[in-house]
């Protein structure tokens, strides 16, 4: 019983411990640090906007397209060269000619 009273008294005192509390303030030059953060945010946004400008998007897509087309063309060229070589070897085999001997 006495113990409960003591606990309740402690609780009441603890709940009143914030009475008369003074506001905490940030460190000096807080505004300067906020300003610096805003500047950082602005330049990051500007860089992002520059990257996503339509002209850059179109140019980047064009470059990707050109690279793809050139890759397909190169593959086709290599495939036809290989096919031609295979045909030459087949004909040489059929006629019993050593392809190396024709290479003069």
């Amino acid at each position: 019983m006495e113990s409960n009273e003591r606990i309740n008294s402690e609780i009441d005192k603890t709940l009143r411990s914030l009475d008369g509390l003074e506001r905490a303030s940030p460190r000096p030059f807080f505004h300067t640090r906020v300003q610096a953060r805003l500047e950082g945010r602005r330049s990051a946004t500007a860089a992002k906007n520059w990257t996503f400008r339509p002209a850059w998007v179109v140019a980047s897509l064009g470059l990707v397209f050109a690279l793809n087309v050139s890759a397909v063309l190169m593959y086709q060229h290599q495939a036809s060269t290989y096919e031609q070589q295979q045909t030459t070897e087949t004909v040489a085999d059929e006629w019993g000619i050593d392809p190396l001997s024709l290479d003069w």
Binding site: A24, P26, R27, F30
Partner: peptide
């Protein structure tokens, strides 16, 4: 700044985090 910092500090209960959050509030 003091009202914002004081409120934030009481909730996050960490001075560095409170400074960071208070700056974000003004941004």
């Amino acid at each position: 700044q003091s009202r914002v910092y004081n409120t934030v500090l009481a909730i996050v209960q960490h001075p560095d985090d409170a400074e960071d959050v208070a700056q974000e509030v003004f941004v």
